[in-house]
């Protein structure tokens, strides 16, 4: 029995250092659950529907290992991505200072893609703010510098998860009014995308 090819309206990818909570966020988004997952190996695909103003869309969500040595597969992982969720852990300074590594990967994504910078594990600082190693202002400033949108979330409590998802949907709808999402299908492996001449135009938070 053959099944039809499904159309994914938007490819969302998660980026961020090891253990910042990428898989946890995906689980929260797609299943509404919270648990400590085993470490992610390779890449994982899941999907989620988004109810737009006029129609329903299907978004694909891709999750991958965050360790730096797996970066060389980024060009495959990021290909055709229209939305990048770049995560850092607000209780782990390193995960914030290393963020440039993930912005580097935007060279492989769609030209009109949008970026959302996300500080995770907000629940950890609810009890004691001592654990916070990255301030809200720092996060906002980083996002502003990088032409990205910004959220602090907790996948555990669900804080800001709905808002995040709606922002993704909104931005997608705005974007798709302007452009048609391209489904380039190239089979070249290790293809190195040349620089595009146009700089990405993004609104800022």
């Amino acid at each position: 029995m053959n099944e039809e090819e499904e159309k994914y309206d938007l490819k969302i990818i998660l980026l961020g250092s090891s253990k910042v909570g990428k898989t946890t966020l995906v689980n929260r988004l797609t299943q509404g659950t919270f648990e400590n997952p085993e470490q992610t190996t390779g890449a994982t695909f899941s999907k989620k529907k988004y109810q737009g103003e006029l129609q329903e869309y299907t978004f694909s969500i891709w999750d991958t290992a965050g360790e730096e040595r797996f970066d060389s597969l980024s060009s495959f992982y990021c290909r055709n991505s229209g939305c990048e969720l770049i995560l850092y852990d607000i209780t782990d300074r390193n995960s914030f200072t290393n963020l440039d590594r993930f912005f580097d990967k935007l060279q492989y994504t769609n030209e009109d893609s949008f970026v959302i910078l996300i500080g995770t594990k907000l629940d950890l600082i609810e009890e004691t703010s001592k654990l916070r190693k990255v301030t809200l202002e720092e996060g906002k400033k980083k996002a502003n510098d990088k032409n990205s949108y910004f959220f602090e979330i907790s996948s555990k409590t669900g804080h800001n998860i709905q808002e995040l998802w709606e922002t993704v949907g909104d931005l997608f709808e705005k974007n798709s009014q302007k452009n048609e999402i391209k489904h380039r299908q190239d089979n070249n492996h290790f293809q190195i995308n040349s620089f595009t001449n146009n700089q990405k135009k993004k609104n800022c938070c």
Binding site: E38, T41, G42, A43, T64, F70, L73, F76, Y77, R79, Q185, D186, N187, H189
Partner: peptide, 22 residues
């Protein structure tokens, strides 16, 4: 697999690295 644009690397690297362990 090629016709479907599947990036096998994203799957098979782990098979090999862990010797099919996980």
């Amino acid at each position: 697999i090629i016709s479907k644009s599947i990036s096998l690397e994203l799957i098979t690297q782990q098979w090999f690295l862990c010797i099919y362990l996980t």
